[in-house]
Design a protein around this nucleic acid. Structure first.
Lengths: 184, 184
DNA sequence: AATAAAGTGAACAGATTTGTCTACCTGCAA
DNA sequence: TTGCAGGTAGACAAATCTGTTCACTTTATT
């Protein structure tokens, strides 16, 4: 990947996270990255293409760090839960936490046929899939249901952390997950 | 309240829900409502003030319908859970569901000092408070924790329903809430 | 050293943004 | 009938938006 293109994607992702997608103009991305407008439109046909590239970059980031974290998990349900929600906890308490890029994007793009909307759904499925695979290495009954529940807890924790500034949202969700998995 | 002003607020709320806040221009709101620009700026000093009025309107709507629904609940924890999540279920499956206006707004406005951000937090507290009061009429131990958990489940269900089109998100969350409250 | 690829800077177009202002209209009440 | 409150229509300003184009420079490779 050309370095200028990658730099553009990373700058755009950072600005989109902080300010939102419509509110971040092309000119700001160019000024911040120091890239010229002609170069941007050589690599991307439109702003939407740049948004998609930024989301794809973020998708890969998330899947990568999640898989790395999970590679340290024991093959027990409890350990998977611990790793997933501690991972979230670190994110929520990192310097630059502006909520989930995909949840935020879905707030701005509602058209069900938009490539952005489609990619949001794809990303959420990717995350769920990684957790499901790890859970499958444990002896876990009713797996499909439990993964769905964990997914819901993750979304709830992200939103609670972002909209209400509740920095312990991941720990709250972790306790809920433990309770839910222990029983049933 | 002047009828034109109220009409403006309701049109704006509807468009903000569907298209987002930045993506909805003043001109579209005026064309849709049939109100003139001069009238808008007589009632509101800026677009931000109109956004705040629309959010306030939505806040009142939500608190009103939630309280009405809860007034039919028995004084048991189980009944409160049933009412809250069935209420959500109806919303998710209604014709015009575009996610939560406040979650969506927090995706577009990240400045912690913005009046919009402050109102988002206020709204979430209002909802929690209504549920907490109802829960207090039941004999419920560890109430503060349980309310927080229910709040997290609500957020999770809304996001799952909106971003993934999971129409049964509220029912999934309801089962989780039942399990969580039964134990502990 | 020559060539080709990649990037820059700036001007420009055309549409769209929020917000202001003026002139006019309409219905109601004293 | 006079006057006023509330609304309309539309022009206008100034900024900002995405996207295009062109002439020039830098960088890397051979």
């Amino acid at each position: 990947m050309q370095p200028r293109k990658q730099h553009l994607i990373e700058t755009a992702l950072s600005l989109f996270s902080e300010k939102g997608y419509h509110a971040t103009g092309i000119d700001l991305i160019l000024a911040t990255s120091g890239v010229s407008k002609a170069t941007l439109y050589k690599h991307f046909r439109s702003k939407e293409e740049l948004i998609l590239a930024a989301l794809k970059n973020r998708d890969q980031q998330i899947l990568g760090t999640l898989q790395t974290a999970l590679s340290n998990a024991d093959k027990t349900q409890l350990s998977v839960i611990e790793v997933v929600f501690d991972h979230l906890h670190n994110w929520f308490n990192s310097e630059a936490f502006f909520g989930c890029n995909f949840i935020n994007a879905s707030a701005e793009y509602n058209d069900p046929n938009s490539p952005i909307t489609l990619y949001i759904i794809e990303h959420k499925q990717n995350v769920i899939k990684v957790i499901a695979e790890q859970l499958a290495t444990t002896n876990c009954d009713d797996q499909a249901n439990k993964v769905q529940q964990i997914g819901l807890l993750i979304e709830g924790a992200i939103v609670m952390a972002h909209t209400q500034g509740e920095k312990n949202a991941a720990l709250i969700a972790k306790e809920m997950a433990k309770t839910l998995l222990k029983i049933k």
